[in-house]
Every structure is written in C-alpha cells, then in structure tokens.
Amino acid sequence: MKILVCISDVPDTTTKIKFAGNKELDKAGIQWIINPWDELSLTRAIELKEAHPDKIENITVINVGTTASEPTIRKALAMGADNAIRVDSEPKEAYFVAAQLAEVIKSKQFDIVFTGLDSADYNGSTVGGMLAELLDMTSVSAVSGINIEDGKVIVSREIDGGTQKLDVQTPFIAVVQKGIAIDPRIPAMRGIMMARTKPLEVVAPANIDNLTEIVEYEMPQPKGKCRKFTEENVNELVDVLHKEAKLI
C-alpha cells in the first residue's frame, strides 16, 4: 500500500495574527509549522508503516507551496515520510489547492490519502472533500482512528452523536481529526540527518481558476471589559445572569 499525506504550513497556533493593510497576512515574525492535523495524520501513517512493514511500502507527503514551505516539508521527511512532492505555487485558496493536488495524484497511485480536517489558517476544512470529488474517490470525514486488521482498513469516524467503525475499500481519502494519533512524532536525529537526502520532487502548477478570493481581513471587535466578582459576591453574578443576561 502507498500512503499520501497532504501537508500545509500554517502559522504556529500561538502566533498573534496581524495583517498588512487588511489585504494580506503580515508574515513578519510568524513561525510556520506543519498544520497540526496534517502532522498527526503523518504520525499515524508512520505508525502504521512501522506496525505493518509488509503492507505499507511507502509514505509520500505533498504540499502546495513556494520554496518557503520546504523547511516544513523537510520536517515531514525527518519525521519519517519517504519522499515528498511540492507543487510550486502559492496556495491561493482551497479549490485551487485541491485541484493542484488532484492533478498530481491522478498520475500516481495512492491507496490512502490523508488530509487534515481543518487548517489552522483559513479554517476551511475543505481540501480533502474537494480532492475526493475531483478524483471521484471515496472520502471518509472526521476520521479519528485508522487501523489495519486482517488485511482490511478499519476507519473510525465521528458522526453526529457518536462514532462509527467502517471497513473501507482502498483507495480512499481520510479527512482526519483529533484522536488519530496522540502526539505528533518528534523527528529523531537519524531522521533529521536523512531528511536532506530523501527525494523532494518539485512540480509545476496546473492552470486553475480560483473559485473564491479573500477581499479583506478584519480583526474581531475587542470585547467589553469583564465584570469581575469575588468569592463574597457570587450572588450578584447569579443575579446578573438571571435577571440581566436571562441565561439561567
């Protein structure tokens, strides 16, 4: 089996977001990381390969991005991916990214494709589903677990009100959420050393029209001041919640 993990690089989740003139993200001082969901997907893919070396022959990571995203890609290789593909373009919007990925994946065979449920930047949670439709593949969303049992791929997904276990035929796209792996893998020295020698293929982007574009950013309105109470006047808070806010 061959696994593909789609990765994007996003500002570190603790980053304070600023914009340059409301039109674009102010990239100064931002530390870029692998999108947390993508990192967990990759971690799970590596765990599966370690547990089933006979079944999983290769893990590829793919990214749509400029050379600026190469440190992120190299980190994925250091973690344990075998090779990488970078589609050489700014990731303009979700459909654009999905269509670029589809172009590359079409010509290669992957059995399981992982994408993150969400991205910590544009919070689209959209690339995986779009990619599946463009490739006419099965997609399973909100995947919180994946295992290989008796040669079958068993996927757990969250549904409204619970979880389901599914036996899914490959090839398919898993849109992954929290729970797939506990912590992202920390790259080992050996992995870091080998990352530079692993193949990183750069492909030219296809010509794709954007379906959406960001016109302008806004910052949220600052919240009004917090009204503070103490251990001694909790009763006043309850009063306010009951009479003014009418919440209880």
Binding site: R74, P184, A188, A195
Partner: peptide, 17 residues
C-alpha cells in the same frame, strides 16, 4: 541551518511534552 533549527525544535518539543 535547517537541521540545526529542526534539532532545536525537536528538543523543545520533547522538553515541553
């Protein structure tokens, strides 16, 4: 270098986690 930064991050992640 990229490797040096990666090692720094790995150590940081390990210590924090």
């Amino acid at each position: 270098t990229e490797e040096q930064k990666m090692i720094q991050q790995a150590a940081k992640d390990f210590a924090e986690r």
